[in-house]
Design a protein around this nucleic acid. Structure first.
Lengths: 234, 234
DNA sequence: GTAATGTTGTGTCGGTATCACACAATTAGA
DNA sequence: TCTAATTGTGTGATACCGACACAACATTAC
């Protein structure tokens, strides 16, 4: 079969925002570029799509290179393609974001990338249009987490409700009422009481829950309204 | 500035699902391909991204070629990039969907494309991965319209509440209670009573409303829950 | 031991939204 | 004037939401 006569072929990159939660702050992974242009500046992790590589394969490869993890939750955000977004050469970038359990993050395979976890609260300036990407990723995370039980992806297998609440407070940067939050979460029936308690606590030890994976998969697209109309919240 | 040494450059296409509503059925625009491969088969409208063309410029160009309209509402859906999705040559396709007022559709500029409006209910098989794209677009439209007042994009400037209701019933392929729907829509305060009535009606003439553009822009990202938990609806 | 402190689990209550359903008003045509 | 179709508005039971109170638990200070 002949090829298309259209001559314009473009570099296709993928860039990823990896979110994590350390128990207090919402964090993201960025790298310090070790090549020109913009050497030593902060950047998202990315890479080019290879000729014989499906997009989701490329995304998984990039995520593995950055985190040492496989089977991570991620979803596409948007494809960025302004003509001059990369000063070196016209490059379109398929941007996506991932949610990982920060405790599983394996620094081993990624030393060469000079990766760092930084808090979303005081993030540095990033190269190119990467700031825009992070803004959009945060917006979409907030949207998604308000309606779907996606927050669990950021937590360990066993977690307490106060732990989950702190995550939501970090995502939305707003305080949440303990009692209403607890009721709302439990009413989803997604949590299984493990019978264990959080021994790390200095005072009353909270119940450790695990996620009912079966229900989680099934209900993922159902609405839950974990956060009410965040678009009007400040 | 030197160019990137990475050698793989890909064809970048954009494909668009254009939704319209004729008062009864939800429809979409498709074209009959007049070139090989897959000549005479049904396809989405698309085109290649040019070297010096921003992605949103390309999207507007393709939409104009197809509909004769400018300033159409559209949003990105997903970028499709399986290696063999196009048998001619590796091509990634940035897919988006648009909502238009079907009465404004101008067939003039698009004769060469052999475009047709077809009902979503009995859509023909499309080439490549275009069926998958339409499935996803419909899903996203349903998602979006359940939460945000996006349906108005498919209606004329002046419309009645029963008209709007029929649109929602077409989108979700399910009956809706007249009285609750009316109350829900009016409670958004997005509608302005034009003082006119729908003279086309054979019986009681319904009030013609127009959209409060200012509030519409402002409230676009607020939640409205026009349809309750459609994911559980059949 | 016992009290103090911080944290967690659960309950209450008033307001609001939602859903299912009823009834009255409007219009063309028989 | 009556009928049939359609549209506008109302009602009541129920569930949900947000604001707030209180009891139980675990460590530390004394």
């Amino acid at each position: 079969m002949k090829k298309y006569p259209h001559t314009t072929r473009l570099l296709v990159a993928m860039d990823c925002i990896v979110f994590g939660f350390d128990g207090d702050d919402l964090k993201m992974l960025i790298i310090k570029r070790n090549f020109e242009p913009e050497k030593d500046k902060w950047s998202l992790m990315g890479g080019f799509v290879n000729q014989e590589e499906d997009l989701n394969v490329a995304a998984n490869r990039i995520l593995f290179e950055l985190t040492g993890l496989k089977d991570i939750y991620f979803e596409e955000l948007q494809t960025f393609g302004k003509v001059n977004r990369d000063p070196v050469e016209r490059t379109i970038s398929i941007c996506f974001f991932a949610l990982i359990n920060i405790l599983k993050y394996d620094q081993g395979p990624v030393n060469e990338h000079n990766a760092h976890w930084i808090s979303l609260k005081n993030r540095p300036n990033l190269i190119f249009d990467h700031n825009e990407m992070v803004d959009l990723a945060l917006e979409k995370l907030r949207y998604k987490a308000a309606l779907h039980p996606v927050g669990f992806e950021l937590l360990p297998e066993k977690f307490t409700i106060p732990h989950l609440q702190k995550l939501y407070e970090a995502i939305y940067d707003t305080p949440v009422d303990r009692r209403n939050f607890s009721r709302k979460i439990l009413s989803t029936n997604l949590l299984i009481d493990t019978g264990e308690k959080n021994e790390k606590s200095l005072t009353k030890k909270a119940i450790l829950y695990s996620l009912d994976q079966k229900k989680y998969q099934k209900q993922f697209n159902a609405f839950h309204y974990f956060i009410s109309d965040f678009s009007n919240a400040k």
